[in-house]
Design a protein around this nucleic acid. Structure first.
Length: 152
DNA sequence: GCCAACGTTGGC
DNA sequence: GCCAACGTTGGC
């Protein structure tokens, strides 16, 4: 079992959106960064995910999801109408992937980025390192447990 | 809206 | 292969 943190702008796709998906799962599409894509490729069904809201009034971890389906081609790369259309991607050799997420639960409260930055034990966690921009990143089990302890 | 940090592109 | 220019992310 592996642990991840995935960022989304709540105006675009929030935890609430995932919670309300009629199918019970949401496609994590639109990733157009190679390192983030490579992490998607490593995700396995039942892996746990911190759902992080970015680019909003209170950036932070708002809930937990789990991986419901492993990586497959992201269809938005082939759709000229889509913002994330990639004219260089070929259906016979897809460049971009998506995974499916299932809602697990809301945290009792948002664990803000500001709070995470204040934790000395999280100083090496990629999320709080300067200049981190990855939208999908692995979370060491020790960090996962520590962050969950902040919730109570 | 600003801008630092970082990734990508493309000329050479 | 270098690196300047440009685009994007995302906190503030």
């Amino acid at each position: 079992m592996n642990y991840w943190l995935m960022k989304s702008e709540p105006d675009t796709y929030s935890l609430e959106t995932l919670k309300r998906e009629p199918t019970g799962v949401g496609s994590w599409d639109g990733v157009r960064n190679y390192q983030a894509r490579n992490y998607l490729r490593e995700q396995r069904v039942a892996d746990q995910v911190f759902f992080y809201h970015s680019n909003c009034a209170q950036p932070g971890i708002v809930g937990i999801a789990r991986i419901a389906a492993e990586a497959r081609a992201d269809p938005t790369q082939f759709d000229p109408q889509h913002d994330q259309f990639d004219p260089t991607a070929k259906p016979e050799q897809p460049r971009w992937l998506l995974t499916e997420l299932a809602y697990v639960r809301d945290l009792k409260r948002t664990i803000t980025l500001e709070e995470l930055k204040r934790q000395p034990l999280l100083a090496e966690f990629a999320l709080v390192r300067k200049g981190n921009r990855l939208s999908v990143l692995p979370v060491a089990k020790a960090y996962w447990d520590l962050i969950l302890q902040l919730e109570a």
